[in-house]
Computed example of a mutant assay.
Amino acid sequence: MSEDAPTAVFLAIYIITFLIGFPNSALAFYSGIHKIHRQCIPIDIFMLNLAISDLIFLTFLPIKMKEAADNMVWNMPYFLCNFHMFVFFLPVYSSSLFLTAISAERYVCIAFPVKYKSQKRIIYTVPICVGIWVIVAVSSLFVYKAAQIDSDEADNTTNQRPLVTEPQTCYINFTEKQLIKLLPVRLGLAVVFFFLPLLTCCFCYINFVCILLKRPLINRKRKLRAIGLALGTLLVFVGSFAPYNISHLVSFIKNENPEWRMTTIILTTLNACYDPIIFFLAGAAQTNLSAVQFFMDKAAA
């Protein structure tokens, strides 16, 4: 463990995240179901899946709390180590892709308002969400397999514990053979689930802002609200996921598991608190975007 990030801090942040994030994510989930029943649009489907992703993460966050409370000593049944590793990282990867999909929807909404209103887009949205979950689940299994390699050498006294690389820890220390397989996999995940989505988000939001600024018929207040939400979402995306994925890049270059990587996981944890805020603000912003579409259609006419 890094001295800069004691387990007491980890535990406090996990608890705060759970207390704030779980009720808000549950409310976001309920609100998303209500919106889809009332009027189904693609961005609401992506928002609902984002809420589901956060709920999965928060439901099993108490396992992480227990680990931090025990000073990162794994005092739970060892089968939970495998399980918690999967459910902890799966929502991290899915959240980044759903936030990217939401950025693309906002860009399409303002850049191609006529196509955005097409009912066919609903038909495409559901398979996209299913595809995201499948990609994330399969990718998480790659991490599981890579960490499982050479498990006997990692834990000579407990060779039946594939992911537990020390008798009393879970997914923290790794052997050289494990790192040879694990670090390239992590780098690939960083590229697929962060760096490429980041480029996509930047493209969508930069063009989103540029298009809004060029529309003289749109009220300045509406512009600022929509732009503020877009930039805020981008900052949340970068702040939550950049340090964690940069740690993958540094690990690959140095061929080691940096101690500060555990600290970056805290930032990804806090993302579960930010997503519900984005969800509810997006509801108000969607009204503004509907008005923007009206003005754009009027201008085109």
Rank of each mutant, 00 (worst) to 15 (best):
Y244G: 01
S247C: 00
P276E: 06
L249I: 15
C273V: 12
L289E: 01
P258M: 09
L270C: 14
T264A: 11
I253H: 06
R261Q: 14
S251M: 07
R261H: 15
A272Y: 00
P243M: 04
F241G: 02
A282S: 15
T268F: 00
C273F: 13
V292I: 05
A242N: 07
L234I: 01
N288Y: 11
L289H: 05
L231Q: 10
A230R: 00
I277V: 08
T233Y: 03
Y274I: 11
I278W: 07
D275E: 15
I278E: 08
T269S: 08
S251R: 02
H248W: 05
E256M: 12
S247Q: 03
N257T: 11
F279R: 03
F237H: 05
L281C: 11
T269C: 13
T268I: 11
L229P: 08
F279G: 05
T233M: 09
N257P: 15
V250K: 03
D275N: 15
N245C: 15
T233Q: 05
L235T: 08
T269N: 14
R261N: 14
I246E: 00
I277F: 11
V292C: 04
D275R: 13
I266D: 11
A272N: 11
S290M: 08
L281Q: 08
P243T: 06
L235W: 05
F279M: 09
V250Q: 01
E256K: 15
V250Y: 05
G232W: 06
P258Y: 01
T263C: 14
A291V: 04
T264M: 05
E259D: 09
L231K: 04
Y244S: 05
L235S: 09
L289S: 00
I253M: 10
F241Y: 00
Q286P: 01
T268N: 07
F280Y: 06
Y244E: 08
A272D: 03
W260K: 07
G239I: 07
T268K: 02
V238G: 06
Y274A: 13
V238P: 02
K254S: 13
Y244D: 03
A282H: 09
S290A: 13
A272C: 08
V236F: 08
F237T: 00
A230C: 03
N255L: 14
T287H: 13
L231W: 04
T268Q: 08
Y274L: 14
K254D: 00
T263E: 15
V250H: 04
A230E: 05
L270K: 14
P276S: 10
L249T: 10
S290L: 11
A230S: 03
E259I: 12
L281H: 00
A272S: 01
R261S: 12
T263L: 15
P243K: 07
E256Q: 07
N255Q: 15
L270I: 13
A291K: 09
T264R: 00
M262Q: 13
L235K: 10
A284L: 13
N271S: 12
D275M: 15
H248T: 02
N288W: 13
P258F: 01
L270S: 04
I253A: 11
N288R: 11
N245D: 14
V250M: 04
V236K: 07
P258N: 07
L231M: 03
T268G: 06
Q286L: 15
N245K: 10
I278T: 08
A230G: 00
A285I: 03
F241L: 07
Q286I: 11
H248D: 09
L267Y: 08
L234A: 06
F280E: 01
T264I: 11
Q286E: 14
G239Y: 04
V236T: 03
N288L: 12
